[in-house]
Design a protein around this nucleic acid. Sequence first.
DNA 1: CGCGTATTTGAGCATCATCAAGCGCCGTGG
DNA 2: CCACGGCGCTTGATGATGCTCAAATACGCG
Lengths: 239, 239
Amino acid sequence: MARRDACSDCAIRTRALCSTLSVEQLARLRRLSYRKRYPPGRLITGVDPAETWCAQVLSGVVKLTKALPDGRQQIVGLLFPSDFLGRPFGSASPYAAEAATEVELCCHNRHQFEELMHEQPGLKQLFLERTLDEVDAAREWMLLLGRKSAGEKVAALILHIARRLAGSGCAAGPGPGPMRFDLPLSRTEMADYLGLRIETVSRQLKHLRTTGVIGPGVGRTITLENVAALERMTEGGAP
Amino acid sequence: MARRDACSDCAIRTRALCSTLSVEQLARLRRLSYRKRYPPGRLITGVDPAETWCAQVLSGVVKLTKALPDGRQQIVGLLFPSDFLGRPFGSASPYAAEAATEVELCCHNRHQFEELMHEQPGLKQLFLERTLDEVDAAREWMLLLGRKSAGEKVAALILHIARRLAGSGCAAGPGPGPMRFDLPLSRTEMADYLGLRIETVSRQLKHLRTTGVIGPGVGRTITLENVAALERMTEGGAP
DNA sequence: CGCGTATTTGAGCATCATCAAGCGCCGTGG
DNA sequence: CCACGGCGCTTGATGATGCTCAAATACGCG
């Protein structure tokens, strides 16, 4: 009976939108759902089409990007496990989604998911609250993009990713010693998220390492040696 | 019977969230609503408190701002007539709202407005779709803040305001001759919305005027002489 | 081992910020 | 009526942050 992809086994069972569904509704949704994997860098959805499906992130990190005709790019959001991907109700989603790491999705038929939201007010309510949180997060990032220095931006990004990873159970928890994790983004992606160039990101990262705020690990490895200092640096406080 | 503030007279009757309400529900909401005016520059709500009310903009322009402890500011959104102001459901709104021009609001008790949304799925649905549009708008602005040059930013702001003003029936419509309007923002506010300094905004505006893309009017007056050129400049095309 | 890609490092430069006047507008008050 | 002062905006000169270009190094992988 217990299938490997049964909802009760689901890694995001308690945090996903599904957490509001009754057992019966959950069973119904599961019949309409399927899992899908993407390797790092693979495009998940393009900009144009009115996609016929939506999904929830089971594992990995998805980046949402917008681009200018001349190739300049901006990452406008990162999705972590239990986040929702897609644009129900009308207008086509004006950005592309791409796998930043290896990604696993739980996909639903968009139309049927919309119907389920209509039938189950709790589901729609939770989706609405998540969407409101997304507005807040986007605006927080607007403050970063418009008003913060390169150093503040990089510090804020590290903290942001650390918190989201911790919240989704990846990376060594708040156990003994400093938190350690791998950035799910390349330097290019970090730059595209922060409105910087990769060289600037690289230099700021080096600065954080030489001042001991983060550990000396190479590449994407981050060790949070001094979270308080990092927090101060996100708002213009001294290093 | 016909009071001056009757909903049927309301300037935003057809575009506001209320447009989904039945006559009876509209009457109920109206009994719980009141109008409020703010002069330019007046604070409407601060950051901290879990506000007990929410509102819809009847006239004027409201700016939503976030600030860093050292005083740096970023405008994270502008509200025009028929836009919704407030943060129903839980978490306190993490930004301040301030009147940019003379503003008139139609205010509702937050709790009762939430209840109305629960009772009337159409209202909640419309609110949800508006919120999704807000996410899109915020992310569009993230692209601007992170990746556009000063010239592109100013061009985009003028177009953005022109469209929103036209959509809310202010300013000379698309009748004969070029559209003309007054910017609802000071130079400081434009800079805070674009992530620039006021001197840069001033110089970019001058450049647009000397190249004839906008008319030579002084101060906040804008005449759209060449919309196509303005649109091109928004994305890196030649002036 | 050798190649392709990601990242780091360095040097010079451009854009936009900063600093500093100056101008125009307007309400106040002599 | 005009001098005064405040404020918002403009203009100019200078400089710093972050970008561009270029090359070296490290890394992953066949």
